[in-house]
Design a protein around this nucleic acid. Structure first.
Lengths: 332, 332
DNA sequence: TTGAAAGCGCTAACAC
DNA sequence: GTGTTAGCGCTTTCAA
């Protein structure tokens, strides 16, 4: 049916090996021959079959990306970073959604290895033992993007969430607050449990303040849930005067709950959050935020993966990227 | 290195043909033999090589998706719809970003065909002649998702953007407005030029109102640009009293420009927009919107593609999905 | 119900 | 510089 390397070889009166050399840019081809072959390729409309190539060479120039949910802008932005670097190094990406379900993660993992991907970038809330075991037996390089690995034997790319959370809460403390609530995403996400919450508590304790359990609110990361959960804080005798929110969806949900109740931001309550989306800047007042470099998280992960796939020596396989705080209108 | 079908065959004392039958669920295998083979597969940890399978069978169970920019929530949401149906039918997705650049689209197209994808879902602002030609010679099924094809010989899935725009503007007219501005996305996007703008003008004309050129504002689809472009409208002698915005980013940009100027929404100016993201509901006042079923657009596209890949007869290959209007606080 | 064998389209020694 | 050839790991006739 379609044109093969053999057709080109016959048309150009050379062997398929020569055509292969031309296609792969091998220098051991006489310029005249190269031109002749190139002409035939053009004329016949030959397009190399990457599947056959993959079988013969054991390289597919394809990597797998397992992401909880690409429709979440957090992962979409991160994936774009991965994709751009992948393009730069001429890799394709097989993108799959896990919904953070462990069985699904295992399935996808197996599936992608079956497809002979050259490498894998993995994102999840938390690494199960099963997945870790599966990863340790896989014979392709793996990078965890924005995902914690307590044992640190896997390559990871992150920001220092603990310190970032500390910075955010410190800012509120410096503004004179003593009753600071942490409205968090789900604690099933390691970054929330072991980084942001820890940083929050460290800042509070360092300031000599008590850590009130009632001021810790767990949400499912959605605007709607955060909006509802404001009710819990509002009925407290001693309401918080400042909120550290796990991300901007949560912050805006809280903010709207607060304002629908007649309170003012930042006059009555100040808010600071991790920024994952445009939302932080689009709402009024604009939210003071820890800006998370999502694109870079993806890009650096992919760059690291290319090094591993090339067998290059990787000096630091647990990368921490810089972040910054942007002061806007939700704090004074 | 890794376990092949041949290893399993030897271990189970059968031919590779039999192992292949077991793996592929072929019924012509004695139950006892099947069990024996399955045991060996389990014991050896055999994982079929999808590349070899693809070469032999000429099916990769992989489809290509070309998207302008996955970091835009519009495409991220749509892609999730594609992905879920793909999973259901056991296809993987190679996801690539084109940034709407035609040369990049051509490259990707060629690249994906080289990877022997079984089908392709394509999204773009507009179909170039080059791409259409390339598509017509491709020997795999192609579906355009949220992308116009004037010649209608390609399969497409859309909503009736023209009618939706008409409905939106009609709503504003019914609310008594006569000076209605259309703040559009770029006219290089066919849906903006040939659907939304046309629907806007149809509604205006049908109401016996004049179409003022000054009321048409083109933006680059971003919040920031829309925020800036408010300046153009504000300096008009006769400012519009209502705005039909191409999407929620634009609407929020406009809204913030308007309010930073001291005007009130909806009292001074009413706004209605196409909703692509959470933004419409997260801002205050919440935006009255045409809710675009992005997820469904993707899901239906993928379902259509599976039918085409199966060689099933497709009765309607230009699908229009329903949409709805949700009245919120930015209109009275 | 099972096996033998011929490819699928390409890469990569190895030989010339 | 170029050609020959043996796989890569699997599916799929065709026989038995």
């Amino acid at each position: 049916m379609s044109i093969t390397i053999y057709d080109v070889a016959r048309e150009a009166n050379v062997s398929m090996a020569t055509v292969s050399r031309v296609v792969n840019g091998n220098q051991n081809v006489k310029p005249a021959t190269r031109k002749k072959v190139l002409d035939c390729i053009e004329r016949l409309g030959y397009r190399p079959n990457a599947v056959a190539r993959g079988l013969a060479s054991k390289k597919t120039t394809t990597i797998g990306v397992i992401v909880p949910d690409i429709s979440k802008s957090y992962y979409a932005e991160l994936s774009r970073g991965i994709a751009d670097i992948a393009t730069m190094y001429e890799y394709n990406i097989i993108l799959s959604n896990s919904d953070k379900r462990m069985t699904r993660e295992m399935e996808l993992f197996d599936d992608l290895l079956g497809k002979q991907v050259d490498g894998l970038i993995f994102m999840s809330d938390s690494l199960s033992e099963e997945i870790k075991k599966e990863m340790s037996t896989a014979n392709v390089p793996i990078v965890l993007a924005g995902t914690l690995d307590s044992s640190t034997d896997l390559a990871t790319v992150n920001i220092d969430h603990e310190q970032a959370a500390y910075d955010a809460v410190k800012k509120l403390i410096d503004n004179g607050h003593t009753r600071i609530s942490h409205v968090s995403g789900p604690l099933t996400r390691d970054i929330n449990r072991y980084c942001k919450k820890v940083g929050y508590e460290r800042a509070i304790k360092e300031a000599g303040l008590p850590v009130y359990e009632e001021y810790f609110i767990e949400t499912d990361n959605t605007y709607d849930d955060a909006y509802e959960k404001w009710r819990i804080l509002r009925q407290l005798d001693e309401k918080p005067t400042a909120i550290f929110a796990g991300n901007d969806d949560i912050a805006v949900g809280m903010m709207n709950g607060i304002r629908d109740d007649g309170y003012s931001i930042p006059d009555d309550i100040e808010i600071i959050c991790f920024q994952h989306t445009l939302l932080s800047r689009a709402v009024r007042p604009q939210l003071t935020s820890i800006v998370v470099p999502l694109y870079d998280l993806g890009a650096v992960s992919m760059r690291l993966l290319t090094k591993m796939m090339n067998g290059e020596e990787v000096t630091e396989s647990n990368v921490l990227l810089p972040y910054r705080m942007e002061e806007r209108q939700s704090t004074k």
